[in-house]
Design a binder for these strands. Sequence first.
DNA 1: CATAGCTATTAAAACGTTTGCAAAGAGCGG
DNA 2: CCGCTCTTTGCAAACGTTTTAATAGCTATG
Lengths: 329, 329
Amino acid sequence: MSKLTITEVARMAGVSIGTVSRVLNNRPGVNPDTRTQVLEVVSRLGYVPDAGARKLARGSRGLIGVAPFSAHSSNSPYYGILLDAIQETIVREGYAARVLEPSVGEEMLSEVSGFIVPGVHLDDSRLSLLIERNIPLVVVGRCEKNVPWVDIDNTGGMRLALQHLIKLGHSRILHMTGTPIGQTTYDRLESYHQTMQDAGFTLSDELILDGTFTELGAYRILRQALEKGLEFTAVAAASDEMAYGAILALQDAGFRVPYDVSVTGYDDLPFAPQTQPSLTTVRQPIRQLGRTAAQLMLELIAGNAVRQVVLPTELVVRSSSAPLSRNRR
Amino acid sequence: MSKLTITEVARMAGVSIGTVSRVLNNRPGVNPDTRTQVLEVVSRLGYVPDAGARKLARGSRGLIGVAPFSAHSSNSPYYGILLDAIQETIVREGYAARVLEPSVGEEMLSEVSGFIVPGVHLDDSRLSLLIERNIPLVVVGRCEKNVPWVDIDNTGGMRLALQHLIKLGHSRILHMTGTPIGQTTYDRLESYHQTMQDAGFTLSDELILDGTFTELGAYRILRQALEKGLEFTAVAAASDEMAYGAILALQDAGFRVPYDVSVTGYDDLPFAPQTQPSLTTVRQPIRQLGRTAAQLMLELIAGNAVRQVVLPTELVVRSSSAPLSRNRR
DNA sequence: CATAGCTATTAAAACGTTTGCAAAGAGCGG
DNA sequence: CCGCTCTTTGCAAACGTTTTAATAGCTATG
């Protein structure tokens, strides 16, 4: 069987290729009936337009920049997965994606037909610059400004983890936050406050530690806290890396996880099932996050309305969390 | 000025576009004089062929898989940079690149016209599978098998770092290795042995610590060693991450870097200049590594001979290394 | 009832390459 | 100097889309 092209689709649907093209690109001027008709054929045949041909026909306009998050955050596998998903979608649609260095060069602004910006800081001036210049922009992560963005339900996810721990009998739950620089950190922290209060516990500042979003950061600050004699029976970390660092810190200090202390992570990165013990964590759909971001960008370029999307999270229970035990050391 | 196309190049060189195309794709049957002539024009105008058009004309054959390194190693920013460089080159040549999960699916083998495999393990059975099936393959990292590969000069780079420390007066130099799973770890370790011996020092196994290629791994094992009273005046780490972990471990234990202990890294990742103190390290050309890997793949597909490439490394001296001081604590 | 003004559709011309085929020379043995 | 190969080159047809201009079929208007 030869390659499936738009011609075949057109023939099957009994229309011309021009019409099919318009349907596929959401262009106006096609009868709703014809549209659904064509879409039906497309999905039945499983037709996927050729990226190269689209790009060629469109006149090669269409380089989409993926930029600029802080250099430091790129240490996580999280970003690798996210970027790959973004690229995949963009390239499939016949655009080119280019990952740019954190330093946005002025000259780039003219070469690029849009920016996807993951991991934006709360006060990022570069963001304002892009908005000001009216350059198509999609932000990955919730954003106060009126731009299209995708985010996961950070608040809901954190609540899931905490309610899980609370149901297991824990009340002195330590929250390991990330660097207080992004909306994400803030949202998860806020959710911690809210959920603990709702459960009737009093908040205590000493139970909130900044683990800088890294294994090592979490490890160091937690060991330090343990040496000072801080008491708690569970750790709810704002990332899997920090959860892992916390587990090691606890183990090195002689605590058993989860028997003495329970630990939960956030993200469900590929290594989460492989830690010792395997990590109970909040799963977020990273690839879908990337796909959606790319999608929003394409919609934006096509002139559609600005919209925001929030993706759901889900609790994955593994072995790092257990009921509060009475005979603790 | 409109877009620069092959037509313009042909006109400038006084030949037909067919000839230009043949030159650009290294196809036989074009006069050597004409060839250099065309190449001259191409480089003068700075002409870059349109990726989409190439892909289209070639009939869309050409998806190149970038796969499968172990999930764990993907935690480093190193891989992000490498993958981006590979993708950039491949896409520029009109092929598509797809980053695959570590688990190589059988079904993938038929869809893909070649594999680029970074971070191969010494005994990787999947590698043998690919060779057996005669699937075009490029390995990033030295490889015993007769396949095309690119690597950096690991041995030479380690020697540079060590000779730097030796020149500063250090003799008890600790080597922080990575997980003993890849050729890279082995090469750097071997170079440590060799260089120390050449300098007339006796080797001691206690001066070799496995930092698992991570910040946290390095931090934990070094703190442990310090508590046991291990004596040394310098640390030569096999990665920047481990060097950073080592610096923090030393500082947390009350040592000053570089006054009490010098530390060197390896890779020169983006964060290296930003540590406290900034990191003396061995720079490797990561992007070029990726570009070369992609290049070799394209050559392989074009039917050229298998070849191997070794890229040079370079010492970058910053503030984490200093002369051995006498009045140490 | 002719005309203008819509809308939905089609036909065909790009887009920038690669590549099979034919043509034009060049060298050469007869 | 005539036919032969061989090498080098040019021509033109793909490749799978998008998009512009033209067309056909309506409805509303005068």
